[in-house]
């Protein structure tokens, strides 16, 4: 009988091993372990055995049953594994094909730079002030210490609309407007915006361009504060090792007035074509607010003083990105704009 069981076990294990589906496994389970299986049939005959025989045979029969169950489970797991593998294989894709394109828009490089500059100065406690582009002569010139007939008016050829109205030639009128409503109190503003001058458009001139003006007024502002502020700003825009230097200059609304150079970020100051060999690049004009500007805006120039600086944004953008022609910024060639998609 044991031999009979042995033969049956071999048969069961071999059939289970070659089963190819869960269904087949189910059938095999019924065949070998079910009520009508040979094992059950044999077990039924155990009643007629001697206690000794029954014990031995019983143990054996149980052992065989466990073996068949284990084989069934193992094969079931294996078949499941094979099924998953087959499904995965059928779901092969080429992962190197390009992704579905979502269009990426872009912000204009002037906008990107303005936002970068705004964020820097906001971090330093400045607010962003704005003003009209069509401006009164009063704010564009007169309140900035440039009365009618002043030779400084020749420095900026203007687009006049009426005798007293023009397209602003600088963002400085926002200074005057802000001071007028600030009641002798401290002011810390940045004024970005479009400005206009009668220039023929060429690689370095544009009749329309953008500036930002910074103005800080308080009771103990010094020119050293101006230098520290601009140095921090230049380091933000052009790298942490930049140096700046001041050179004497003239603007009617500041006294003293300076041109500000930044050490060349390309050659580090040794001299290269970008800095025309002298190691410095002229980037902006600045100075201490002229007392006449403060007084005209109702400030007490004996107690309050401040500094101001004005930067051509195109100049910064062109330097930063190596753009050789200012007209690129206004023709809006898609091939140009696309180059500024990247977040910075």
């Amino acid at each position: 009988m044991i031999d009979q069981l042995q033969t049956m076990l071999q048969d069961a294990l071999s059939q289970i091993a070659s089963a190819n589906s869960q269904l087949e496994l189910g059938e095999l389970k019924a065949n070998f372990l079910g009520k009508k299986s040979p094992l059950s049939e044999i077990m039924k005959k155990m009643g007629s055995m001697s206690p000794e025989e029954r014990k031995t045979f019983g143990m054996k029969a149980n052992e065989f049953k466990v073996q068949i169950e284990n084989a069934l489970n193992a094969r079931r797991t294996e078949l499941e594994r094979l099924a998953i593998a087959a499904r995965l294989a059928s779901e092969h894709i080429d992962v190197t094909l390009p992704g579905r394109k979502l269009s990426v828009g872009s912000l204009h490089p002037l906008t990107k730079t303005i936002e970068e500059v705004e964020d820097f100065f906001i971090g330093m406690g400045y607010n962003i002030a704005e003003g009209p582009e069509v401006e009164l002569d009063l704010y564009n010139f007169e309140m900035l210490n440039v009365p009618k007939g002043h030779p400084a008016r020749d420095m900026q050829d203007s687009f006049y609309i009426l005798d007293n109205l023009l397209l602003r030639t600088q963002t400085s009128p926002v200074q005057a407007r802000t001071l007028l409503v600030s009641d002798n109190k401290p002011v810390k503003i940045l004024c970005p915006g479009k400005v206009y001058r009668r220039d023929d458009d060429d690689a370095t001139h544009s009749h329309q361009f953008m500036q930002f003006e910074g103005l800080v007024v308080g009771s103990d502002i010094t020119m050293s504060d101006l230098k520290g502020t601009l140095e921090a700003f230049m380091r933000k825009m052009f790298g942490p090792t930049r140096e700046i230097r001041f050179r004497p200059s003239y603007f009617p609304f500041t006294e003293p007035s300076v041109e500000v150079d930044v050490s060349c970020f390309k050659c580090g100051g040794k001299g290269c074509p970008l800095c025309k060999g002298n190691g410095w690049i002229e980037v902006l004009g600045a100075g201490m607010v002229h007392p006449n500007v403060l007084t005209q805006a109702g400030y007490d120039a004996e107690k309050m003083r401040g500094f101001a600086f004005g930067v051509g944004i195109e100049r910064v953008v062109m330097l930063k990105y190596g753009i050789d022609d200012i007209r690129h910024l206004y023709t809006n060639d898609i091939r140009f704009l696309k180059q500024f998609e990247r977040g910075e």
Binding site: M124, G125, P186, K188, V216, G218, D220, I221, T222, M223, S224, D225, L226, K227, G228, T229, E231, A232, F246
Partner: peptide, 9 residues
């Protein structure tokens, strides 16, 4: 000139 940052609050 020194390089300082304005003391305004």
């Amino acid at each position: 000139l020194k390089e300082t940052i304005p003391a305004t609050n």
